[in-house]
Protein backbone atom coordinates (compact mmCIF):
# COMPACT_ATOMS: atom_id res chain seq x y z
CA UNK A 1 0.00 0.00 0.00
CA UNK A 2 2.81 2.38 0.97
CA UNK A 3 4.57 1.62 -2.35
CA UNK A 4 1.39 2.40 -4.25
CA UNK A 5 1.11 5.79 -2.51
CA UNK A 6 4.79 6.55 -3.25
CA UNK A 7 4.30 5.59 -6.89
CA UNK A 8 1.21 7.79 -7.20
CA UNK A 9 3.09 10.69 -5.58
CA UNK A 10 6.02 10.25 -7.97
CA UNK A 11 3.70 10.17 -10.99
CA UNK A 12 1.97 13.33 -9.75
CA UNK A 13 5.33 15.08 -9.35
CA UNK A 14 6.42 14.05 -12.83
CA UNK A 15 3.10 15.22 -14.20
CA UNK A 16 3.41 18.64 -12.60
CA UNK A 17 7.00 18.92 -13.85
CA UNK A 18 5.76 18.22 -17.36
CA UNK A 19 3.03 20.80 -16.95
CA UNK A 20 5.59 23.36 -15.77
CA UNK A 21 7.73 22.64 -18.83
CA UNK A 22 4.71 23.08 -21.09
CA UNK A 23 4.37 26.72 -20.04
CA UNK A 24 5.61 28.87 -22.93
CA UNK A 25 8.60 31.10 -22.40
CA UNK A 26 8.13 34.85 -22.69
CA UNK A 27 9.89 37.34 -24.95
CA UNK A 28 9.25 41.03 -24.16
CA UNK A 29 9.81 43.60 -26.87
CA UNK A 30 10.31 47.33 -26.81
CA UNK A 31 11.73 49.56 -29.52
CA UNK A 32 10.94 53.26 -30.00
CA UNK A 33 11.63 52.86 -33.72
CA UNK A 34 8.89 50.27 -34.27
CA UNK A 35 5.45 51.44 -35.33
CA UNK A 36 2.87 50.78 -32.58
CA UNK A 37 0.23 50.01 -35.23
CA UNK A 38 2.04 46.85 -36.22
CA UNK A 39 2.68 45.38 -32.77
CA UNK A 40 -0.21 42.97 -32.95
CA UNK A 41 0.88 41.61 -36.33
CA UNK A 42 4.45 41.38 -35.04
CA UNK A 43 3.31 39.40 -31.99
CA UNK A 44 1.37 37.00 -34.22
CA UNK A 45 4.38 36.52 -36.49
CA UNK A 46 6.76 35.92 -33.57
CA UNK A 47 4.44 33.45 -31.85
CA UNK A 48 3.99 31.55 -35.12
CA UNK A 49 7.74 31.38 -35.73
CA UNK A 50 8.70 30.21 -32.26
CA UNK A 51 5.87 27.67 -32.22
CA UNK A 52 7.04 26.27 -35.54
CA UNK A 53 10.64 26.20 -34.25
CA UNK A 54 9.67 24.11 -31.20
CA UNK A 55 10.80 26.88 -28.84
CA UNK A 56 7.34 27.86 -27.70
CA UNK A 57 7.66 31.52 -26.72
CA UNK A 58 4.98 34.13 -26.22
CA UNK A 59 5.89 37.53 -27.65
CA UNK A 60 4.67 40.58 -25.80
CA UNK A 61 5.28 44.02 -27.25
CA UNK A 62 5.13 47.35 -25.44
CA UNK A 63 4.55 50.85 -26.83
CA UNK A 64 5.78 52.67 -23.72
CA UNK A 65 8.98 51.90 -21.89
CA UNK A 66 7.36 52.51 -18.50
CA UNK A 67 4.94 49.65 -19.24
CA UNK A 68 7.78 47.43 -20.37
CA UNK A 69 9.73 48.13 -17.20
CA UNK A 70 6.75 47.56 -14.90
CA UNK A 71 5.76 44.29 -16.56
CA UNK A 72 9.36 43.09 -16.68
CA UNK A 73 9.64 43.47 -12.92
CA UNK A 74 6.24 41.85 -12.38
CA UNK A 75 6.42 38.95 -14.84
CA UNK A 76 10.18 38.25 -15.04
CA UNK A 77 10.32 37.17 -18.70
CA UNK A 78 13.03 34.81 -19.87
CA UNK A 79 13.93 36.85 -22.96
CA UNK A 80 13.84 40.44 -24.11
CA UNK A 81 14.31 42.16 -27.46
CA UNK A 82 15.35 45.71 -26.61
CA UNK A 83 17.85 48.43 -27.48
CA UNK A 84 21.12 48.07 -25.59
CA UNK A 85 20.44 51.13 -23.47
CA UNK A 86 17.39 49.53 -21.93
CA UNK A 87 19.16 47.73 -19.14
CA UNK A 88 21.98 50.23 -18.82
CA UNK A 89 19.70 53.19 -18.39
CA UNK A 90 16.91 51.67 -16.37
CA UNK A 91 16.87 49.51 -13.34
CA UNK A 92 15.48 46.17 -14.35
CA UNK A 93 17.69 44.32 -11.90
CA UNK A 94 18.60 41.46 -14.21
CA UNK A 95 21.73 40.70 -16.15
CA UNK A 96 21.08 40.32 -19.87
CA UNK A 97 23.04 37.80 -21.97
CA UNK A 98 23.09 38.62 -25.69
CA UNK A 99 21.85 35.71 -27.82
CA UNK A 100 21.42 37.13 -31.28
CA UNK A 101 21.86 40.41 -33.09
CA UNK A 102 19.90 41.59 -36.10
CA UNK A 103 21.58 42.34 -39.39
CA UNK A 104 20.47 44.71 -42.12
CA UNK A 105 22.56 45.04 -45.27
CA UNK A 106 25.42 43.35 -43.41
CA UNK A 107 25.38 45.81 -40.51
CA UNK A 108 24.23 45.38 -36.93
CA UNK A 109 24.51 49.05 -36.19
CA UNK A 110 22.55 51.98 -37.52
CA UNK A 111 23.66 55.57 -37.70
CA UNK A 112 21.36 58.53 -37.16
CA UNK A 113 22.14 61.99 -38.44
CA UNK A 114 20.63 65.40 -38.80
CA UNK A 115 19.58 65.84 -42.42
CA UNK A 116 18.76 69.22 -43.93
CA UNK A 117 18.35 70.97 -47.24
CA UNK A 118 21.51 72.31 -48.95
CA UNK A 119 20.89 75.90 -47.82
CA UNK A 120 21.42 74.84 -44.22
CA UNK A 121 25.12 74.46 -43.40
CA UNK A 122 25.14 73.83 -39.66
CA UNK A 123 22.78 73.30 -36.75
CA UNK A 124 23.10 76.94 -35.71
CA UNK A 125 21.37 77.90 -38.97
CA UNK A 126 18.20 76.27 -37.70
CA UNK A 127 18.49 77.44 -34.11
CA UNK A 128 14.92 78.74 -34.27
CA UNK A 129 13.71 76.05 -36.61
CA UNK A 130 12.01 72.69 -36.39
CA UNK A 131 13.33 69.14 -36.57
CA UNK A 132 11.15 66.14 -37.34
CA UNK A 133 12.13 62.89 -35.65
CA UNK A 134 10.76 59.65 -34.28
CA UNK A 135 10.97 59.39 -30.53
CA UNK A 136 9.51 57.67 -27.54
CA UNK A 137 6.51 59.21 -25.82
CA UNK A 138 7.87 61.74 -23.37
CA UNK A 139 10.62 63.03 -25.62
CA UNK A 140 14.12 62.07 -26.65
CA UNK A 141 16.11 59.86 -24.29
CA UNK A 142 18.33 61.82 -21.95
CA UNK A 143 21.85 62.07 -23.34
CA UNK A 144 20.84 61.12 -26.86
CA UNK A 145 21.96 63.21 -29.83
CA UNK A 146 18.48 64.69 -30.15
CA UNK A 147 18.55 65.65 -26.50
CA UNK A 148 21.94 67.33 -27.01
CA UNK A 149 20.59 69.32 -29.95
CA UNK A 150 17.70 70.49 -27.83
CA UNK A 151 19.97 71.54 -24.97
CA UNK A 152 22.49 73.26 -27.24
CA UNK A 153 19.79 75.10 -29.19
CA UNK A 154 16.80 75.77 -26.92
CA UNK A 155 14.96 77.56 -29.73
CA UNK A 156 14.80 74.40 -31.84
CA UNK A 157 11.45 72.62 -31.75
CA UNK A 158 11.28 68.88 -32.26
CA UNK A 159 8.16 67.50 -33.90
CA UNK A 160 7.59 63.79 -33.29
CA UNK A 161 6.50 61.82 -36.36
CA UNK A 162 5.40 58.17 -36.65
CA UNK A 163 8.13 57.05 -39.06
CA UNK A 164 11.58 58.20 -40.09
CA UNK A 165 10.45 58.45 -43.70
CA UNK A 166 7.85 61.04 -42.61
CA UNK A 167 10.64 63.14 -41.13
CA UNK A 168 12.76 62.82 -44.24
CA UNK A 169 9.94 63.65 -46.64
CA UNK A 170 9.03 66.64 -44.47
CA UNK A 171 12.51 68.10 -44.89
CA UNK A 172 12.67 67.09 -48.58
CA UNK A 173 9.45 69.01 -49.27
CA UNK A 174 10.46 71.99 -47.11
CA UNK A 175 7.91 71.42 -44.34
CA UNK A 176 10.54 71.34 -41.55
CA UNK A 177 14.13 72.56 -41.38
CA UNK A 178 15.78 69.22 -40.62
CA UNK A 179 15.11 65.56 -39.91
CA UNK A 180 16.91 63.34 -37.42
CA UNK A 181 16.85 59.94 -39.10
CA UNK A 182 18.85 56.80 -39.88
CA UNK A 183 21.19 57.51 -42.75
CA UNK A 184 19.82 54.50 -44.63
CA UNK A 185 16.54 56.35 -45.04
CA UNK A 186 18.24 58.88 -47.32
CA UNK A 187 19.35 56.05 -49.60
CA UNK A 188 15.81 54.70 -49.57
CA UNK A 189 14.45 58.06 -50.68
CA UNK A 190 17.18 58.51 -53.28
CA UNK A 191 16.23 55.11 -54.71
CA UNK A 192 12.74 56.42 -55.39
CA UNK A 193 13.62 59.94 -56.40
CA UNK A 194 17.31 60.69 -56.94
CA UNK A 195 16.60 64.41 -56.94
CA UNK A 196 14.86 64.35 -53.57
CA UNK A 197 17.71 62.30 -52.09
CA UNK A 198 20.54 64.38 -53.47
CA UNK A 199 18.89 67.64 -52.40
CA UNK A 200 19.51 66.66 -48.80
CA UNK A 201 22.69 66.60 -46.78
CA UNK A 202 23.96 65.62 -43.37
CA UNK A 203 24.74 68.56 -41.15
CA UNK A 204 25.93 66.64 -38.13
CA UNK A 205 25.09 64.91 -34.91
CA UNK A 206 25.64 61.44 -36.32
CA UNK A 207 25.62 58.64 -33.84
CA UNK A 208 26.01 54.92 -34.31
CA UNK A 209 23.87 52.64 -32.21
CA UNK A 210 23.46 48.87 -32.24
CA UNK A 211 20.10 47.49 -33.37
CA UNK A 212 17.99 45.98 -30.58
CA UNK A 213 19.26 42.50 -29.68
CA UNK A 214 17.66 39.44 -28.22
CA UNK A 215 18.87 38.83 -24.68
CA UNK A 216 18.28 36.03 -22.20
CA UNK A 217 17.51 37.46 -18.80
CA UNK A 218 18.52 36.01 -15.44
CA UNK A 219 15.16 34.20 -15.45
CA UNK A 220 16.05 31.96 -18.41
CA UNK A 221 17.69 28.60 -17.80
CA UNK A 222 20.65 27.58 -19.97
CA UNK A 223 18.42 25.03 -21.65
CA UNK A 224 15.78 27.64 -22.50
CA UNK A 225 18.45 30.01 -23.83
CA UNK A 226 19.79 27.23 -26.02
CA UNK A 227 16.30 26.45 -27.36
CA UNK A 228 15.79 30.06 -28.40
CA UNK A 229 19.31 30.38 -29.83
CA UNK A 230 18.64 27.29 -31.88
CA UNK A 231 15.35 28.71 -33.13
CA UNK A 232 16.99 31.99 -34.09
CA UNK A 233 19.79 30.28 -36.01
CA UNK A 234 17.48 29.41 -38.88
CA UNK A 235 15.15 32.39 -38.87
CA UNK A 236 15.94 33.50 -42.42
CA UNK A 237 15.39 30.06 -43.91
CA UNK A 238 11.67 29.68 -43.31
CA UNK A 239 8.64 31.63 -44.47
CA UNK A 240 7.43 32.48 -40.98
CA UNK A 241 10.95 33.47 -39.92
CA UNK A 242 11.38 35.74 -42.93
CA UNK A 243 8.09 37.38 -42.14
CA UNK A 244 9.16 38.00 -38.54
CA UNK A 245 12.50 39.61 -39.39
CA UNK A 246 10.90 41.47 -42.29
CA UNK A 247 8.39 43.01 -39.92
CA UNK A 248 11.22 44.07 -37.64
CA UNK A 249 13.05 45.56 -40.60
CA UNK A 250 16.05 43.21 -40.70
CA UNK A 251 17.54 40.70 -43.12
CA UNK A 252 18.60 38.13 -40.54
CA UNK A 253 19.52 37.43 -36.95
CA UNK A 254 23.09 36.35 -36.31
CA UNK A 255 23.93 34.37 -33.20
CA UNK A 256 26.27 36.14 -30.83
CA UNK A 257 29.38 34.11 -29.97
CA UNK A 258 30.44 33.60 -26.37
CA UNK A 259 33.23 36.22 -26.55
CA UNK A 260 30.91 38.90 -27.90
CA UNK A 261 28.14 37.80 -25.57
CA UNK A 262 30.49 38.35 -22.63
CA UNK A 263 31.23 41.82 -23.94
CA UNK A 264 27.55 42.48 -24.48
CA UNK A 265 26.46 41.47 -20.99
CA UNK A 266 24.56 44.36 -19.52
CA UNK A 267 23.52 44.99 -15.98
CA UNK A 268 21.99 47.96 -14.25
CA UNK A 269 24.73 49.73 -12.35
CA UNK A 270 24.37 50.64 -8.72
CA UNK A 271 25.43 54.22 -9.31
CA UNK A 272 22.57 54.78 -11.74
CA UNK A 273 19.95 52.72 -10.02
CA UNK A 274 20.63 53.39 -6.36
CA UNK A 275 20.63 50.56 -3.83
CA UNK A 276 19.63 47.21 -5.30
CA UNK A 277 16.42 45.63 -4.11
CA UNK A 278 18.46 42.98 -2.28
CA UNK A 279 20.65 45.46 -0.42
CA UNK A 280 17.64 47.58 0.44
CA UNK A 281 16.01 44.70 2.29
Amino acid sequence: MRRVVQLAFTIALLGSAELAQAEPMRLFFFSPDFSPGNLSVLAQAADAYFRESKADTRFQAFVRFEDFEREFLAQKPEFVLVPDWANDTLCLGSEFRALAKPVRAGESHGRKALIARPTVRRVADIAKGSIAATMTPGGPASGSALDRIRRDHPGVRIIPVPKEIDALLAVAFGQVDAAFVSTGQVDLLAGVSPKLGTDLKEIGYAESTPFPMIYATAYATDEQAEDVRSALSSVASTGTGKRLIGLLGYDDWVLVGSAEAAKRRTKSTASMCGPSKESAK
Binding site: S35, G37, N38, V41, Q44, K163, I165, G246, L247, G249
Partner: peptide, 9 residues
Protein backbone atom coordinates in the same frame (compact mmCIF):
# COMPACT_ATOMS: atom_id res chain seq x y z
CA UNK B 1 6.60 46.25 -44.13
CA UNK B 2 9.31 48.59 -42.91
CA UNK B 3 7.29 51.56 -44.08
CA UNK B 4 3.86 50.45 -42.95
CA UNK B 5 2.27 51.68 -39.76
CA UNK B 6 -0.22 48.89 -39.81
CA UNK B 7 -0.48 45.61 -41.67
CA UNK B 8 -3.94 44.12 -41.84
CA UNK B 9 -3.67 40.40 -42.26
Amino acid sequence: LRLADKVID
